[in-house]
Write a protein that binds this DNA or RNA. Structure first.
Lengths: 349, 349
DNA sequence: TGTTAGCACTCGATTTTACCGAGTGCTAAC
DNA sequence: GTTAGCACTCGGTAAAATCGAGTGCTAACA
């Protein structure tokens, strides 16, 4: 409403020291209390030896410059998205509580199982750690190469194409043929598929046989089915932890509903996270990410990489007044542990 | 509170016609309006030509017998769980709106893809259909037999055991060896594993080689890893559709949080659904299912079967004042379509 | 005996009013 | 540039007033 000014009033990216201190004090207190912050409490809390009146004049300026807003006359000030942005940009890296450090270390010392399981568990860890909803994204295998394929026949016309990729993922695809094939033909097709596909990626062009016999038809069919998955974001894995936190952390049923609705759309979540990563930022506040229904949210992301390549990300979603310092530290720590976990001892599992 | 009487006062399972009509009227109206229902509106709506005063005396009786409750003196009546129970038990099978029938038909005419995808899509369909949160459960493959196994090596010590089951599911398990194995040894192990496991189920005892060479050790390791999954509910698939509905359908943040919290625990959801199925009922109201945090919910389930065997279930979760007739009809219809879908044209995919 | 009109009564929900006080903006003095 | 002082605003809370849906009871009625 009134908070969104027509002329985003020249956000000069630097505030003089006192303004900055005041802004920070407002943000910190508002994050803590969820209430508008008045001049006097700022005058006290921040260690600038200055009267509330002075703080007030500064606040007027900060409001004019778009960092603060007033819910109504004669209320305290509330940070705008821009205000949070400044706060976050000037945040010195937070340090994680030792209890949480321990929790993370223990977690990674004990996790077992497939990548998928680890990622899912991690999402739970993150939401426990922060009390916000977490998102863990593992990239698809578009760049991974095929290690092995196998065509298994279920009955005469239904076959299952099972593919193992170099990144340890396994996919299955039904192959429904219009013709019948014998066991022998299926295993021959399987053999040919292996010869054909091993070492290729889903992006590679493959020379399929053009013959008209059953085996060749099977092979063509299988390759087609496998490659059909390519274009979309398919293969991306998304794990959401602690979606129930949404209900505690946002006020207003409507907001809760909207946020939960978004979280249901996995594709959307993936692209949200990837968009943010692409922009090279680690926090998207309010409408910065451009997803309207999430305009009252802040999203924190941290990439997980393997050999220099980004193979996933962890994210946390909360209200714009979230505990940035702690949460960013947690995201950072977990993403590093994940990176190490996959890169270090055991790349794929 | 006052609603839970100490002596569940002899719920005689049969009410005379008039009481039944009144109870039904109360339930119907309360489901519709979410408000306590007064005697006069019942007197009007139900087609018993009787004055509000009479209705009132009957209501007193119904309350004494535990079917109705009063939020406070001088408010209307609200059904108790027992009231809903009676209502549901005496519900003639609802018939689905034709728009919805069409939606279901079109859905099943067009779904493609693996079982998992179909189940996931189905959960979305169900929640769209009913505006409640849906749960689709696919059973594990403890009874399915192995169609094919394959050991793929990622590097000298890490291998991936990929297993295809007769029900079309595919699992993968990391096999971490303490020793190195060559390509040749791995494929030999793979061959032996096939010979050993094909046709067995996860419950079968398998005679593993006791030799001490690399191949034998690999085989033993692989079998161990595969069979380790057995005891738990692992392999069960759960798909939850429309969890954001929780926020619209329940009032009170606290309830929403609790319900979402439950939905996060997949194992819990599975056992909830299976418990209800085991009891042979299709609706669990309030505390009937014994999961305390869900005491303000009703859960509707319908089994999905294949060749007489229950292979899964669909469920819907809403407040006790949910639209039983419509929702039960929807659950019924979808479960039948699913049954047909898997049983009829294509058992596995 | 079951039904009903009549009626006093209850009590939550809604509205009204009053009031408090945190917080503001402004001004004049320092 | 800073600050004390001050009048003013206005949301939040509490108390009071009001409303009315719905009740339980009783006495008359069929």
């Amino acid at each position: 409403m009134a908070r969104r000014l027509k002329t985003p009033p020249q956000p000069k990216r630097n505030l003089d020291a006192r303004k900055a201190t005041i802004l920070e004090a407002v943000v910190v207190e508002h994050i803590d209390t969820a209430q508008p912050v008045g001049s006097s409490s700022v005058a006290q809390s921040a260690d600038l030896a200055v009267s509330p009146a002075t703080v007030r004049t500064e606040m007027v300026a900060l409001e004019r410059e778009g960092y603060l807003a007033q819910p109504h006359t004669s209320a305290g000030r509330v940070p705008t998205d821009l205000g949070y942005r400044y706060f976050v940009d000037h945040l010195e890296a937070g340090i994680l509580g030792s209890a949480q450090q321990k929790q993370i270390r223990e977690f990674f010392a004990h996790v077992r199982g497939e990548v998928e399981d680890v990622l899912e568990q991690t999402s739970i860890l993150l939401s426990h750690l922060t009390n916000y909803t977490s998102v863990v994204v593992g990239s698809g295998h578009s760049h991974a190469s095929v290690l092995s394929v196998q065509l298994v026949n279920l009955d005469a016309r239904h076959h299952l194409l099972v593919t193992v990729f170099s990144d340890g993922t396994v996919t299955k695809h039904s192959v429904l043929a219009t013709f019948e094939a014998s066991h022998v033909e299926v295993s021959e097709a399987s053999r040919q598929l292996n010869a054909l596909l091993i070492g290729t990626t889903l992006e590679s062009k493959v020379q399929v046989p053009s013959r008209h016999d059953v085996v060749a038809k099977l092979v063509r069919e299988a390759v087609a089915v496998l490659h059909a998955e390519m274009p979309t974001l398919e293969g991306e894995q998304v794990y959401i932890g602690g979606s129930s936190r949404v209900a505690e952390v946002f006020e207003g049923v409507e907001t809760v509903r909207k946020v939960l609705g978004i979280l249901e759309e996995e594709l959307l979540v993936v692209s949200l996270v990837e968009d943010i990563l692409d922009k090279g930022i680690s926090v998207a506040i309010g409408s910065e990410h451009g997803y309207e229904p999430l305009s009252s949210c802040a999203v924190i992301v941290a990439p997980v990489s393997l050999e220099g390549e980004t193979i996933g990300a962890v994210g946390l979603l909360g209200p714009t007044r979230m505990k940035y310092r702690e949460v960013m530290a947690a995201a950072e720590a977990v993403s590093q542990h994940l990176t190490r976990h996959f890169g270090g001892d055991d790349p794929r599992a």
